[in-house]
């Protein structure tokens, strides 16, 4: 498992190659990349500043990956989340998962992302023409995370 919080950008090709690591058991690689949009809540976004809680954030991300490993047959996972000032179109987050078959990789990748959005200590501050504002949490993110507790799929 790889969990990193960093200001630098990441190279998706390189990170996924490292995740696969030449493991011949891998039959599926699912990846999600989150990027900065230029509009949020009807305001144009000039820059976005992400902050975290060093120590706790890495611990929370590792716990989410462990939870995914307990639910699905996955081989490995990588989570990289950027902090600091970002601009529209910049990459924010990478979640990559390997498994023998695609179903486990797809599901685990989406689960990790849904839990990251509702449980990992990150906060976004947007700079818009009207000023700087902290982004409010969305109930749709809570709903997305709650799906996984309704009918958790158990490993065979």
């Amino acid at each position: 498992m790889t969990v990193r919080v960093q200001t630098a950008d990441f190279d998706v090709t390189r990170e996924l190659a490292a995740l696969r690591g030449g493991d011949p058991r891998v039959g599926a690689v699912a990846a999600f990349i989150g990027t900065v949009r230029d509009v949020n809540d009807d305001a144009s976004v000039r820059t976005m500043t992400l902050e975290h809680y060093p120590g706790m954030t890495e611990k929370a991300l590792a716990a989410i990956v462990d939870d995914a490993k307990a639910r699905w047959d996955i081989l490995d996972a990588v989570v990289i989340h950027r902090v600091g000032e970002l601009a529209p179109a910049d990459q924010i987050v990478l979640v990559g998962v390997t498994s023998a078959h695609r179903g486990d990789a797809f599901a685990a990748c989406e689960f990790i992302m849904d839990y990251l959005k509702t449980r990992a200590p990150f906060w976004k501050k947007e700079s818009t023409p009207e000023g700087v504002r902290w982004v409010d949490a969305r109930t749709s993110d809570d709903d997305a995370a709650a799906r996984w507790s309704v009918a958790p799929r158990t490993k065979a």
Binding site: Y53, M113, W123, W134, D136
Partner: peptide
């Protein structure tokens, strides 16, 4: 002990 507002990462 940390006080955390609702998280908004990802």
């Amino acid at each position: 002990v940390a006080l955390l507002p609702p998280v908004t990462g990802g």
